[in-house]
Design a protein around this nucleic acid. Sequence first.
RNA 1: GUGGAUGUAGCUCAGUCGGUUAGAGCGCUAGUUUGUGGAUCUAGAGGUCGAGGGUUCGAUCCCCUCCAUUCACCCCA
Length: 458
Amino acid sequence: MKPSIPKGTRDFTPEDMLKRNFLFDTIKSSFQRFGYLPLETPSMENLSTLMGKYGEEGDKLIFKILNSGDFLSEVSADELSLKNSKKLTSSISEKALRYDLTVPFARYVVMHQNEITFPFKRYQIQPVWRADRPQKGRYREFFQCDADVIGTNSLLCELELLQLIDDVFAKLGLNVVVLINNRKILSGIAEVFNESEKIIDITVAIDKLDKIGPEKVAEEMRTKGVSEKAIDGLKPLLVFEGSDQEKIDLLKKLLQSSEVGIQGITELETLLDYASPFTFKNIEYKVDITLARGLNYYTGAIFEVKTNEPKATFNSSICGGGRYDDLTGIFGLPGMSGVGISFGADRICDVLEELNLFPANVESSLDLLFINFGEDDIPYSLQLLNKVRAAGINAEMYPDAAKMKKQFSYADARKIPFVVMAGSEERAASTLMLKDMKTGDQQKMELNSLIEFIRNRN
RNA sequence: GUGGAUGUAGCUCAGUCGGUUAGAGCGCUAGUUUGUGGAUCUAGAGGUCGAGGGUUCGAUCCCCUCCAUUCACCCCA
C-alpha cells in the first residue's frame, strides 16, 4: 500500500522543526516576559464541553471521536434507521479533539477555580483540530499559541496584548497591522436598527466587506432578512473612511441611544488612550468597524492581526483574539471576564518562510563536526569532542572512517559551519585543525582557542 | 457541504494530433595513488505515466468511474 497521512495534516521535517522551534521559542519567551504561566490541556475533551461554543458552523467542524468498543450496541434500531447524523453523533461519540485552546482553558478555570489565584494569566502552545477543507494557509491540524488573562475587566489587559503582539513580531522582524473593534459597538449598531436578534448575521456579513464590497454585503444581509432600514442605515458606516477619532465620533452620533453601544465606544477610546503614549516597534494598529470575528463567545474588544508587508501574498489573519465576559458561565462560574489572543503558528511560519525572515543560523543545529580519521586517531578526537561538548558547544564526530569527501559532504548537507580535523599530525602536536566551511579557510589552533572562537561566534 | 484545476523519476515539470526501447533540470550514488566539501566534468541507478474499467489492431494520451492532491466559496489561526 501507498503510505499517506490524513488530508490537511503534515509531517514536519527536521528542517521544518528547527524553524518551528525557533518560532515557538520566541513566542514562548515573550509570553513569559509578560508574566503568563504555562498550561496544557488534553488533546481530547468531552464532546459536550465543546459543542455549542463556536456557533453552528463550528459544531460541524469539530472532529468527533468514536466511542470505544461496540458503540452501536447502545443505539436503538429506530435511531439508526432515521439516519440523522447529528442526533446519532451524541449516541456514538462522547469525546472530541479540541477545536481551540480558549474553551478548554475556560473549562480548566472552572474546574480549578479554588486553586487559581486571580487574575490568572496563562499561555498555552498546543495543536488544535478542525474538520475544515484544507487550502492555502488552512490546515486540519495546526498549532495555536494562546495567551489569556482571566478574572479582571481591566482594559490594561487589552493594552498588554497589543504590547505582547508587538514584542513577538518585533522579535520575528515581521511588520503587522492590528485591527481593533469592539463587539459591544456591533451589538449597539444592531440595537439601534432594531435588529438585535440578527446580530450574528449582520456581523458575519460586514466582516466580508473588504472582500466582496458594500453592495454584496447589503445583499447578504437582505437574504438573511435584515430590514431595508437597517441596511440603509449601516451603509454610511461601512464605506466611511477616516481616522480612528473620526470613526469614533461617527459611532458616538449613531449609537447615542444604545447603552451597550456607548459602553463599547468608551472601552475602545480607553484602550486607544492607553496605547497612544507608546511607540510600537512592528505593529500599526487601527480601528476597523467592519471587523467582526467568527467565534461567538467574544463580547468586548476584538483583535485581528495581518501582515503589513507589501511583498507578502498571504493576507489571512495570523493572529486574533478578544474579550469574552462569560465563557466560564456555561460551565457554572459566572461573571468571570477574560481576554486573550491566539497566534497562528503555522500561518506565521508560512509568512516567515515566504519573506525569508528565518535567521540564517536556525538550520545549523551543530556548530562542529569532527572528522573520523580511523582507529588510531579516534581516541584523541573523542577526547577533544567531549571537552568541546562540556563547554556547551554542539558537536559530533562522523561515525565511520569514511572518505574525506563523504565526511565533508555530510558537513555540507547538515549545514555545519565548522569542521575539526584532528588526525595523526595534529595529535602529535596536541593541536587541531579548524576549517570554516563557508570561506574554506583553515587554521591550526589549541582546544581552548577553539572553544573561545565558537563561543564568541554564538 | 458547494464549485474549479491537477495527478508522468525522490522533487519541479516536459512529452506523444493514439504507434515500437517515455525525456529534461535539480537531487541521489559512484569516479581521478592512501587527510579536504560546496562550482565544473564523466558515468550510473531510479517510472506497471494515480487506480479500475471502456473504445481501439494498439492507450501515458480519447471516454467513464473512483481515489488523491490543490485552489476558491462557506467559515476560520
